[in-house]
Design a protein around this nucleic acid. Structure first.
Length: 274
DNA sequence: AAGGACTGCAACCGCAGGTGA
DNA sequence: TTCACCTGCGGTTGCAGTCCT
C-alpha cells in the first residue's frame, strides 16, 4: 500500500484555497516527521501552518497517527489481535479508538478497516446483519473458538497454557474487560487468568510474520486449506467454518442458525459453555 | 491478454465535545 | 453565556492492486 501512495499522482489542490488533498508525498512526510520531532504531536493546525505544508491540521494529524508515528505497527492482524478485536467489539461496538487502545501500535482506522473488510463480509455471507443475534452467536460460538484453537496451536505448551472453556463467554454474561496495555507491549490472555505482558516485538516476530495467519485462514483453512479466503471468493458448495454455503447455494439465516447449533454441539466437546 | 469485479486501505468528511477568550 | 476554534471520532469514499472469467 505504500506503493499506492508513492506511485499515485501528486496530491490535488482545493479549488478555493491552496490546501492539498490526497496521498502524501515522501517530501511531505519528511517535513511532517521533522516538524513533529521538534515541536511534538499537538496543535495540529499550528503544525500545518508553521511547517509550510499545504495541508489541514486534521490531515497532518491523521497522517501522523495512522502512518508516520514511530510505534505504529503494520502488517497482518495477528490471531491474538483478531480475538481482541472481536471481544472488545462485542463489548463496545464501533468504538474503534477505544478498541485501538488495547492493541498497541494499531490505529483505530486499521481496526475499523479490518472490521469492515473482513468481519462484515462474513455477515454478508451469512445474509444477516453484523449486529444481528445470529451473527453475534456465530462469532462467539464458531469464530472465536477457532481463533482460540489456532492460538493454542501456535503457542508452545511450555509457555502458554491451553486456553479453556471460560474464554467462550455466555451470551448473557458480560465479558471481562482487559486493561489498556502500556505502549509498545501486547497483552494477550484470553482467559485473563494468566495476565502477562509480552513485548510487541516478540509477538510480531512469531505471529505477524505469518501471512497465512489471517482471518480468512482461520475461517477456511480447516476446510479448504488453501490459504486463500474461501468465503469471500470461492468455496462454492463447500462448507466453511462459518457454517454457511457460498454462492448460489447460500443458506438462509434459519439454516445457518441450525448448522450453527449443530456445530456448537461439537464445539462444546472441546469448550464447555458456562 | 484483456477487462470487469472485487479487495484492502489511506485519506477525507461531517459531526460532537472540549476549551479558552 | 456565547462564540470560535481545535481535536478526536466514526462513517464514507477513492483508487491501486489483485483476482476472476
Amino acid at each position: 500500500m505504500e506503493d499506492y501512495e508513492r506511485n499515485s499522482n501528486s496530491p490535488t489542490h482545493d479549488e478555493d484555497s491552496d490546501i492539498r488533498k490526497g496521498p502524501w508525498t515522501e517530501e511531505e512526510d519528511a517535513v511532517l516527521v521533522n516538524f513533529v520531532s521538534i515541536h511534538g504531536d499537538a496543535r495540529w493546525n499550528h503544525i500545518a501552518r508553521s511547517s509550510g505544508l499545504k495541508r489541514t491540521g486534521k490531515s497532518c494529524r491523521l497522517r501522523w497517527l495512522n502512518y508516520l508515528r514511530p510505534d505504529v505497527r503494520r502488517g497482518n492482524i495477528t490471531l491474538e489481535e483478531q480475538f481482541m478485536i472481536l471481544k472488545l467489539h462485542s463489548l463496545w461496538g464501533n468504538r474503534w479508538s477505544k478498541i485501538a487502545q488495547y492493541l498497541p501500535g494499531r490505529t483505530d482506522n486499521e481496526i475499523k478497516n479490518y472490521w469492515r473488510t473482513r468481519v462484515q463480509k462474513q455477515a454478508k455471507h451469512l445474509r444477516c446483519d453484523v449486529n444481528s443475534n445470529l451473527f453475534k452467536e456465530t462469532m462467539r460460538n464458531v469464530w472465536m473458538p477457532r481463533l482460540v484453537e489456532r492460538i493454542n496451536a501456535q503457542s508452545s505448551p511450555a509457555t502458554c497454557e491451553k486456553v479453556e472453556s471460560t474464554m467462550i463467554t455466555d451470551p448473557g454474561q458480560p465479558i471481562d474487560v482487559p486493561s489498556p496495555v502500556e505502549p509498545g507491549y501486547v497483552q494477550f490472555d484470553p482467559n485473563h487468568h494468566n495476565q502477562q505482558l509480552v513485548p510487541a516485538s516478540a509477538l510480531s516476530a512469531t505471529s505477524s510474520n505469518s501471512p497465512a495467519e489471517t482471518l480468512s485462514d482461520v475461517q477456511g483453512g480447516a476446510v479448504n486449506g488453501s490459504g486463500y479466503d474461501p468465503v469471500g471468493q470461492t468455496g462454492f458448495g463447500e462448507f466453511n467454518d462459518w457454517g454457511c454455503v457460498g454462492g448460489d447455494n447460500m443458506w438462509t439465516s434459519e439454516e445457518s442458525l441450525w448448522f450453527l447449533q449443530d456445530q456448537f454441539c461439537h464445539e462444546t466437546t472441546s469448550y464447555s459453555y458456562n
